[in-house]
Amino acid sequence: MNKKIIFLVLLLNIFLLTSCSPGGSRTGMLNKESDDKKADARLEQVIVAIQNQDKNALTAMFSKQALAEAKDFDGSMNYLFELFQGKVQSKKNDGLIVDESDNYGHSKKEVKSFYIVETDKQKYLFFLLEYTTNTDQSDNVGLYSLRVIKAEDENTQYSSWQKMKIAGIYKPKQE
């Protein structure tokens, strides 16, 4: 019995020491509820800006870095305003990936969120990539990528987040 208690205490100490180290990277469930709420709030802001066709509000959500790297941001925003039609009937969180690192005061947090949004006219898939913290590059804090597509185009316009990590607002290439 005594050996089991010692073993559990040692195991607990190892877990605490490795999960709370001052340097390193964390991915996963830490602050999941808070991250979910923040991602949901950002989605709501994006939808309101799209429905109101509010270019200033939507642009203000993006980081300076994303705006600098984006190609034809205004044209992509106009495309998005035309694409998204109808009144929102439902929103479903379809996944959240949080990558967080804190290396001796150098913090960075990247949130990737996926949603299914249905309107009275169409079903859409949303992908948002946002840097919520970046102590080394404050110009990178904010929305970096936004992809909104019709659900029916999932096979041709939606893929892994790594491939969708493109600065600005997604607009398919014209052929």
Rank of each mutant, 00 (worst) to 15 (best):
E130H: 10
N78P: 02
I5M: 14
E152V: 00
S113H: 05
G24A: 02
S138C: 02
T133V: 14
M61G: 07
K109Y: 05
E154N: 06
I6T: 09
E33I: 07
D136I: 00
K92H: 13
S145M: 04
V141L: 08
S145T: 02
H106A: 15
A66L: 04
Q45H: 12
Y124P: 03
A57V: 03
N52P: 00
D99W: 09
T156K: 15
F15D: 12
Y158A: 10
T27D: 14
N155S: 08
F81A: 08
D74Y: 05
R42I: 01
K123L: 07
Y158L: 06
Y124T: 02
C20L: 15
T135H: 03
D36M: 09
N134V: 03
D102P: 03
A167Q: 10
Y124V: 02
D40K: 13
K121D: 12
A60M: 01
Q162N: 12
K150S: 05
I166E: 13
S90L: 08
K112N: 15
I6R: 11
D139A: 10
Y170H: 13
L10G: 06
G168L: 01
Q45W: 06
M77E: 09
L10K: 03
N56P: 01
V98C: 09
D120G: 08
T156W: 11
W161N: 11
Q45T: 03
K121Q: 15
K92E: 12
D136R: 09
F84G: 06
N31V: 03
Y104E: 13
S113Y: 10
E130R: 13
D153V: 01
K71N: 05
F127G: 07
E175T: 07
T133Y: 08
S160I: 02
Q65K: 13
L30Y: 13
P172D: 09
L8T: 10
L11C: 12
F73D: 03
E100F: 15
A70D: 04
S101L: 08
L146C: 07
Q157Y: 05
K112G: 11
K150R: 10
E82G: 11
R42E: 07
V9F: 15
A60V: 00
D94H: 13
S21R: 10
S138Y: 06
Q157G: 01
D72M: 01
Q137F: 04
I97L: 15
D153Q: 11
V111F: 02
N56F: 05
G28V: 04
K171E: 06
L128W: 00
Y79D: 04
I14D: 10
S63K: 04
K55T: 02
K173A: 15
N140H: 12
E154A: 12
F7D: 11
E110P: 03
S101H: 07
L125W: 10
S159Q: 14
N155D: 10
E110L: 15
I149P: 01
K121G: 12
K3A: 15
D99I: 10
S21P: 01
L129F: 10
N140I: 01
Q85G: 04
S113I: 00
E82P: 00
Q174P: 01
K71D: 09
M77N: 02
E82H: 11
Y144D: 09
R147I: 00
S160C: 09
T27K: 14
Q89K: 14
K112A: 14
V88M: 15
Q89G: 11
I97G: 14
K3T: 03
N52A: 07
H106D: 15
Y144F: 15
Q65F: 11
T132R: 13
T135F: 04
F127A: 07
Q137R: 12
M29C: 00
